[in-house]
Nucleic acid binder design. Sequence first.
DNA 1: AAAATATATGCAAACGTTTGCATCGACTGG
DNA 2: CCAGTCGATGCAAACGTTTGCATATATTTT
Lengths: 349, 349
Amino acid sequence: MRKKSDGDRSTSLHDVTIVDVADEAGVSYATVSRVINNKDHVSPEKRERVLRAMAQLGYVANLQARSLAGGSSHVVGLLVNYLSSSYTIEIMRGIDEVLQTHHYDLVLYTTHTRKTKESAYVARLTRHLADGLLLILPQETTSYLDALRQRRFPHVLVDYLSDGAYAPSVATTNFQGAYDAMNYLLELDHRRIGFITGGRETGCAQQRLEGYQAALKDHGLPYDPQLVYYGKFLQPQGYQGAQTLLNLADPPTAIFASNDSMAFGVMEAARERGLHLPEDLSILGFDDIPQAAQVHPPLTTVHQPLNKMGQRAAELLLDYMADPLAPIERIELPTDLIIRQSCQRRSER
Amino acid sequence: MRKKSDGDRSTSLHDVTIVDVADEAGVSYATVSRVINNKDHVSPEKRERVLRAMAQLGYVANLQARSLAGGSSHVVGLLVNYLSSSYTIEIMRGIDEVLQTHHYDLVLYTTHTRKTKESAYVARLTRHLADGLLLILPQETTSYLDALRQRRFPHVLVDYLSDGAYAPSVATTNFQGAYDAMNYLLELDHRRIGFITGGRETGCAQQRLEGYQAALKDHGLPYDPQLVYYGKFLQPQGYQGAQTLLNLADPPTAIFASNDSMAFGVMEAARERGLHLPEDLSILGFDDIPQAAQVHPPLTTVHQPLNKMGQRAAELLLDYMADPLAPIERIELPTDLIIRQSCQRRSER
DNA sequence: AAAATATATGCAAACGTTTGCATCGACTGG
DNA sequence: CCAGTCGATGCAAACGTTTGCATATATTTT
């Protein structure tokens, strides 16, 4: 029982609806809806009239009503665990680019790594708000992934390739990237190489660790657990890890961090100890976020095409939204070792 | 005419609605709605029963229906011109924090500085989708700001304090910040100080320029337009600006960039020219984004409480959403000169 | 104790769409 | 020339809420 004076319809205060357009064009509102949704069974002449009326009245679709009535909301949800990392932002940019060209809106949820929140948001989004869902580096997938799949709710994971969860995803060649990086360090004669991992629960961190181990093995070097520090992809843990590793009786001559942020933390610690970079310590990162090229010395790192990952994820999602029954696809993009100046041949001393 | 087999109601496929909750609790759905919205006129006993039923059935409100029926959508729109800059992200984090605690969702629009898009999005959002609107560093405000105010649609601008547009906003003491920074450089005996501005159309860029000019004047120094390069807040323009300024017949001994990103560009250019920092060139930024402390040498810069700005903006918006008739408020937060290592006393030579 | 008032509750309409079904007219084939 | 088809169009129901109004019940006042 909304009150609305009769005059409203003629004033600018009243939002113009499908009915107004219909009146203006002299057709029924069902026809207008058909025009809007590009359906068949509308004569070219009326279609033209409707289009003109829409433009004239400045019609803007009401998404709420549309999706309530069973249409699509033209909204996709994006679940992100931590907003600040450049890693996330770069991926978001890629996503945003393609979503924008397809005229989709983006609802953003940050979970701050609270697992409970993640589930709650997924429920919220998939119930009503969004047509599809993108998850960047999700923490706990098991709890809702099954539900998503069962309900055939379109979704794509970015950067998660655990073995258990079989879901559409976009990731990179984490194993190979780490392997290549290690090869490079080993060729620079480093023999004790520290490794700082990311969150244990993420697939990509696990794979990078495996790449590290495999490279050692292929070079006939032993795997020393002491040289591995368990971080969570954040800079302070890189700092802490470096301190721990460099305090070892037989400290590493190179440290490979599982992402760039932690590599920055390593740099910080090294500098604080009065070490010269890269002479006294070689440092290698993973991700190639924009800052990697800007720090000093510029960071040698494994490039992930973050922007591209976002794009592909969004495109894949759009595919699923068009056809929820499409087969599950897992895209893996290649990484690339970017050699800058943070690594050096181990000095003979 | 949705088809839905009768069995659905009992299966998990059917979304649980207010009606289901009402049935379960043995009350009418209107009562359930009242409980959900914390309205009066519900007996404690029934309220309790409804709450229990909601929990048991796992009820999730349908935002679409809610806002269609005249309630609030619990969504706020965020308009951002460029996603990648840390400046933006830090503000977003602040916004996200408070919105999250108030259980609001965030719809993100990036305009990529396309003015036409900005207007279109505002129309889209304010018509239906969102209850309120936040704009970070909006480019063209004149076109829709009047409309927002007239319709009493809650909105808050972040970092825009032009004289013309009188709108609720959160910003910092741009003039004073620039003035303080200049004072510092002048006290370090620099006499030719280059300035790289941000986008001419933004209020903050304008005010920083004025601070620059005022400081010169107060120290009895002439204003040399040659020393001012017009950028747009992006790193490449800092690089370009530095090249231009350092190519001058009488180049500056210090460069003050209107934001940190451009200061990084200056560093890049300086290093490329083989200059030693800070011995050969003092560099000063504005914003104090996280990277400022990480580059080498660590950047002396004017700290803006970006996170806080976001928080205050969101809080202010919530106020307006609670009371759209509240008087227009313009918050100005203090800046703070953070002295790191990118500036040095001008060497006598 | 009756009247007046306040409180609790339910009913039904409305929000702006989408879409199944019915209708109507025009065209096709025999 | 008539039955049969098919495309164009409109009507009305449904989506899941909120909320004004009416009604029933409890509480206060006189």
